[in-house]
Design a protein around this nucleic acid. Structure first.
Lengths: 222, 222
DNA sequence: GTTTGTTCTGACCGATTGGTCAATATCAAC
DNA sequence: GTTGATATTGACCAATCGGTCAGAACAAAC
């Protein structure tokens, strides 16, 4: 399971490491790489500071491990998409999956956001490599859909960014959203309402009307 | 002009203060409040560290001054909107203004984003007060438009958040966007293309078709 | 040229930073 | 119960943190 070390760590060690990772994720999410201190992470994990370094080696190694963990969680998104797929179902599924993912890993998402705000010093290769390929492949398929008249002619890159930004907003800007609507946190109703809104606007905005009779086949649910 | 001190500062002082503010905005934008160091700000401003404190008093005072400066820049957005306004023109204008604003003040926008990621400790009152009123007022007008059948029945709060997030994305996630599309920076063509895309999808997605014959009356242009 | 007020900055402060290390504690294997 | 590996952590390190301060430099007034 672990990133670098090879194999059978005791369950005990695994539990401690996960505790540290979760504590660190919280602190890095709020304050970014530079702003997070090992002492704050240690306090959050209820462990001595030296213990954090014993398990993680260094601040940078800990941080990179968190980035990798978060990247792995996104691997499942929009994995099987073909030119034959139904555009409405794919986009709808994309929106829902992204919403659920943000709610499931709020700290990890914020950590990613902070990393990118900082200029993505540790994510350079990933963004310009793996992720660019990911986007290019999906963009090509979307362009085919447009060419076939199954949806409007829109730049698929901007469409992908639109779905990313619109869904991520409710995790990364949760502090703003909750204060503006005057609530402590978003509940299930809010999230369902937001998801329905985004599906309505984006699908309709892309000229996708028909959505097959099947309401939802492979969507991730909370 | 300045925030706290009363009146006539010499032009010399004004120039130096602006230099410090711009340097600090850059550092705070990348690393957040905790992650930014006065030394890094001083280096960026090409001034001794003690000089920064002489002009700004403290790190916190400097930071708050930057937040206020950025809030002032947003005051003009969507100011005159009435139930009689044309929904298409208003939303279109909103999208364009927000896009231009983000491109004009990228560091200020990122600073804001970092503040909200950190849980908005310094913006609590603003978000729950001034900004909430702002959103509520506009939401009420949008709801009237829906009731009059001039656009779809959508939750206006989610619509406002959608425009915020979709436009801000290209400033705050510029590091990701540029690497994914394989370019050093977004140029005028990209921005025009993105703006057109967002207008198309959001207006159409909200069931706004007709847009008055006037192409664009009061929009901010770059 | 002295005075007065502002600007400027190197030197310094206690606190905190990421990280090391030696000493101790814990544990399973024999 | 002895042994060897792993786990734990207080004490410590140089570097950096935000902030203070005394005094040098500077300008305009008289």
């Amino acid at each position: 399971m672990s990133a670098e070390t090879a194999t059978n760590e005791s369950a005990q060690r695994e539990r401690i490491e996960q505790g540290i990772l979760n504590a660190a994720e919280q602190v890095f999410a709020r304050h970014g790489y530079r702003g997070a201190s090992l002492q704050a992470i240690a306090d959050q994990a209820a462990l001595p500071k030296a213990n954090i370094l014993y398990y993680m080696g260094s601040k940078q190694a800990l941080y990179i491990r968190l980035l990798n963990r978060m990247m792995r969680r996104w691997n499942a998104v929009l994995e099987n998409i073909t030119p034959d797929s139904d555009p409405g179902q794919v986009l709808s599924n994309f929106i829902r999956t992204k919403m659920v993912l943000g709610q499931r890993y709020p700290d990890g998402s914020k950590l990613f956001a902070a990393e990118i705000l900082a200029g993505a010093p540790f994510l350079n290769e990933y963004l310009a490599g793996e992720l660019r390929e990911w986007v290019a492949a999906r963009a090509a398929i979307i362009r085919q859909w447009s060419a076939q008249g199954r949806m409007d002619e829109v730049d698929p890159r901007w469409l992908i960014f639109l779905i990313w930004s619109a869904t991520q907003h409710y995790t990364e800007y949760s502090a703003q959203v909750t204060r503006v609507i005057g609530r402590d946190a978003l509940d299930e109703n809010d999230l369902a309402s937001i998801t329905r809104f985004l599906e309505h606007v984006i699908l309709k905005g892309c000229g996708i009307t028909a959505r097959s009779t099947v309401e939802n086949d492979g969507a991730v649910d909370s």
